[in-house]
Simulated scan of single mutants.
Amino acid sequence: MSTPTTAVSSSTSAADQASETAAASAGVQVRMLTELPELDGVYHLYDSIWRPDPKNPPVTTELLRALTKAGNYVSGAYDGDELVGACVGFFSAPAEVAMHSHVAGVSTAARGRNVGFALKLHQRAWALQRGVTAISWTFDPLIRRNAYFNLVKLAAHPAEYLTNFYGGMHDSINNGDDTDRLLVRWDLDTPAVTTAATTHPTGLTIQSMPEATIALDRSPDGRPILNSSKPTSALVLVAVPSDIEGLRQTDPTAAKAWRAALREVLGGLLADGARVVGFDRAGWYVLELPARGLI
Rank of each mutant, 00 (worst) to 15 (best):
A134F: 08
L154P: 08
A156S: 13
P141S: 01
A147F: 02
L142M: 02
Y148S: 10
I135K: 01
S136R: 03
Y161R: 02
A134S: 15
Y166C: 11
N146F: 04
D140N: 07
L162W: 03
N164S: 14
R144W: 00
H157K: 15
F165W: 06
K153S: 12
L142V: 01
A159W: 00
F149K: 08
R144M: 03
G167T: 09
F149W: 06
T138F: 02
I143K: 00
F139M: 08
R130K: 12
H170L: 14
A147H: 01
L154I: 14
P141V: 01
I135F: 02
F165L: 11
W137T: 12
L162P: 06
W137I: 13
R144F: 00
N150S: 10
Y166R: 11
F139H: 08
P141K: 01
N164I: 14
R145A: 06
G131L: 07
L162F: 05
Y166P: 11
N150Q: 10
N150L: 11
A147N: 04
T133H: 12
L162Y: 04
R144L: 03
K153T: 14
R145I: 08
R145K: 06
H170E: 13
T163A: 04
A156T: 14
G168H: 14
T133P: 10
E160G: 06
G167E: 04
D140T: 10
F139L: 11
G167Q: 05
D140R: 11
A156F: 01
F165K: 12
F139T: 04
G168C: 14
H170Y: 14
N150F: 07
P158L: 05
E160D: 07
A147V: 05
G131A: 14
K153F: 07
F139A: 03
V132R: 07
R130A: 10
S136N: 03
Y166I: 14
N146R: 08
L151R: 07
R144V: 02
A134P: 12
T133G: 15
D140F: 09
T163D: 05
F149Q: 07
A155W: 02
L154N: 10
D140A: 09
W137F: 12
R145W: 01
F139Q: 03
Y161M: 03
L162S: 07
D140H: 09
N150P: 04
V132P: 13
A147K: 02
P158E: 04
W137Y: 10
E160M: 12
L154F: 09
